[in-house]
């Protein structure tokens, strides 16, 4: 992630572009329900610019035309930075007093990490001093429940780069096509990933689905219930007994279905058809992933 943002600042040749890019990140941060990666380089660059500008203003006479304008602009950019940091803090507060999950640490800035440590320590000290120390020994620990990751949020997003075949959900594949969106194509989607911002896109949220080969038995049962409900009622116990995971599912053929105990030929062929469709879908996704990886390598940064 930090490599990418380094590249970003390098390609941004002027302060104007930095400001523009920062404004886009501010909009994304405000509207996204979860934390996005911290844009340290952009913030630092803008703060530098503001410092220069303020020093210049101090030397300027009250030739009021330029002074007023510069001052206005400085205040505007300062507001953006303040609000950006403020909204991040608000999101951090949501999971205090617990610590964030380890994979969230990369999204935070150093100051934010120190802040979290301070707050967590202070809170637990407070709990201990006010209540827990009075409890009988053995009950002096406060165990908070596991925080389930917020995966089911809906967002509006604007497509900046074409990304065909994004899977917004286990079933639906959507093509993000930028050609249609010269003004805006805002998609309302159930975003099931927290902050997988793709390399050049801060507003496009891409979900990485679990590939079929990694499915556990419970996932296979869910898929079965969803796609062929009547087969599910009849043969669910067979799938459970033989502990069919994603790996065995992709390697199945009609003989293996028969060996499991499904003898009715119509059911067998229908079930096999569904399995083939699932395999095809996951193969398409894999091909698209490979294509995209290949394209990204040959063209490092576009847009």
């Amino acid at each position: 992630m930090s490599d990418n943002s380094d590249n970003e600042v390098e390609e941004l040749s002027s302060a104007a572009q930095v400001a523009q890019r920062f404004q886009e990140w501010w909009i994304s941060e405000r509207n996204c329900p979860v934390l996005l990666p911290y844009q340290g380089e952009l913030v630092d660059c803008l703060l530098d610019q503001l410092d220069h500008m303020r020093q210049g203003l101090a030397q300027l006479k009250a030739s009021d035309l330029r002074a007023g304008l510069h001052r206005l602009e400085v205040e505007r950019i300062q507001y953006l930075i303040n609000d950006y940091l403020r909204s991040r803090l608000k999101k951090i507060h949501k999971f205090l007093p617990q610590r964030p999950a380890p994979d969230m640490n990369v999204l935070l800035s150093d100051q934010e990490r120190t802040f979290i440590d301070d707050v967590v320590n202070a809170t637990f000290k407070h709990f201990h001093a006010s209540a827990l120390s009075q409890m009988p020994t053995g009950m002096q620990q406060l165990s908070l429940p596991e925080r389930a990751e917020e995966r089911d949020h809906y967002v509006f997003c604007r497509v900046k780069k074409a990304a065909p075949g994004v899977m917004v959900d286990a079933d639906s594949i959507v093509d993000f096509d930028v050609a249609k969106s010269s003004q805006s194509a805002g998609h309302l989607l159930g975003s099931n990933t927290s902050s997988q911002a793709s390399t050049n896109d801060d507003e496009l949220r891409k979900k990485t689905p679990v590939p079929v080969v990694l499915w556990k038995n419970a996932d296979v049962m869910r898929w079965l219930k969803r796609c062929c409900a009547d087969q599910h009622t009849m043969y669910a116990h067979l799938f459970l007994e033989h502990d069919i995971t994603g790996r065995s599912l992709v390697r199945m053929n009609e003989c293996s279905l028969e060996k499991m105990g499904i003898t009715n030929p119509d059911h067998k062929s229908e079930l096999f058809r569904e399995i083939l469709k699932l395999k095809l879908k996951s193969d398409i996704l894999e091909i698209k992933d490979l294509e995209r990886a290949g394209a990204d390598q040959s063209r490092p940064s576009s847009n």
Partner: peptide, 8 residues
């Protein structure tokens, strides 16, 4: 039940 953190 589904005990998300904010509900605790």
């Amino acid at each position: 039940t589904v005990c998300e953190f904010e509900e605790y």
